[in-house]
Nucleic acid binder design. Structure first.
Lengths: 240, 240
DNA sequence: TAGATTGTTAATCGATTAACAATC
DNA sequence: TAGATTGTTAATCGATTAACAATC
């Protein structure tokens, strides 16, 4: 399931590391620190140590310090980190200030929910929604979501109105086709919520992230069966 | 975000490895092979090499062979693997024959969709649905889903009617509470779709899997910003 | 100053991968 | 047999972790 490139940090001038080449685990964790910091700020807490932050984020304190040092977010020895400063730095790196445009292929229930759940108010705008079902064309499934075009019309629509992120929530049998159309239209970031492994040409730098809820349940089902047989060791959170 | 225990395979009698102690990545990949194999069977293909299977699943061929050897699913040298045999073996290991009972905390839109999307027809039964909103109590949100009880009534309901898997799709502020109630009720497998890092006592073997869609979009947003600045290297799929 | 906490190094750990002898 | 493909080893790679000197 994991077919990750090297993706490892690339040395720069003075032995420093470009924050444009963060290790994948670091990038994912950095995005996870943001809600923790926002929560602290809401509670009026101005500063926190790496130990406190790491505890809340569910990571090791050393790894958190290392992650932050990658992006030049420095704390103060003996004191800790400034919450507001960290939020600013992280937002800058993750570009969460900027609004991203998203197109959604597959107006399935899951697709619509993703749209409603993540699409609004947090830096993402759903610019277009596509589906194979011609009956849906022209209807409005969510308030503010502009159009629904048939899957066939994706190419031209995306050419006229480019998006940065494509979400694939089609039926399994349409997933690869939707992917191909997105890629051909120049979309370089894809979120795939189908269980299909998407094939993208190796030429352009396409980033695909896959979330497979059925697979998550499968894994839990395995553990459910095991827990009766063997009362067992201690295990913990695995983040998708 | 990853706070995984050792979880590594434990040696058994003759140097063999108990398939009850699979490495986490292996277990996740094994669950991913199943849909690939089912797809092959549907197309009437009886056998496949590790190379072919690995290609379809998006993994390295050597890792697939190693994964299968963990569970004693052997191929034939010079020939490959038997599709039907593999399905049977994998189903046995992952216990996908048995129906698992699931309880859902948080009748949010995302919660309801998870219920509709994964709950039916694939080995899972939603036994109970809980929400903080008293107005929802007694209503039926999906056909066949028995009851909605307030979050407060979870403990007694779960005591009377135990479940194997708990799904947490509440508001962020209720996530830890829902988790605590599940754990107290003896639920040992949790799927957390909130961005909250759940704290579970280290004593019982609780398996928590977290899927954070907002975080996935954040990561993609980062890459979206980067792709303009640096046309960049080649990257590939990262599975949640 | 004394205490606390960072930033970073060095060691450990586990997972991935290529390669190849075994063998159908 | 000859060709193909497995099962497994050994090497590589990267990520995690503990530990500690630097220093606020």
């Amino acid at each position: 399931m994991i077919e990750e490139s090297a993706g490892i940090a690339e040395a720069r001038s003075l032995g420093e590391v470009s924050w444009q080449q963060l290790p994948q685990p670091t990038l994912t964790r950095l995005a996870g620190y943001l809600p923790v910091l926002r929560s602290l700020r809401e509670h009026g807490i101005a500063g926190a140590s790496s130990g406190k932050l790491a505890g809340m984020a569910g990571v090791n304190a050393a790894v958190l310090r290392k992650d932050l040092s990658y992006i030049g977010a420095h704390g103060v020895r003996g004191v800790g980190y400034d919450v507001t400063g960290l939020i600013a730095k992280l937002s800058m790196i993750l570009r969460s200030d900027r609004i991203r445009t998203v197109a959604l292929a597959g107006a399935s229930r899951l697709g619509q929910t993703l749209l409603a759940h993540t699409g609004f108010g947090h830096g993402f705008t759903v610019a277009a929604l596509f589906d194979v079902d011609p009956a849906l064309v022209g209807t409005r499934l969510a308030p503010g979501v502009p159009v629904i075009a048939p899957l066939e019309a994706m190419a031209e629509r995306l050419a006229a109105d480019p998006v940065e992120i494509g979400v694939i929530a089609t039926a399994d049998s349409d997933a690869q086709r939707a992917c191909d159309i997105f890629v051909a239209a120049g979309v370089r970031q894809l979120l795939n919520v189908t269980p299909v492994h998407l094939l993208v040409g190796p030429e352009p730098a396409i980033v695909v992230r896959q979330v497979d809820l059925a697979l998550e349940l499968q894994v839990l089902a395995f553990h459910a069966g095991r827990s009766r047989v063997a009362p067992a060791q201690h295990e913990e959170t695995v983040t998708a």
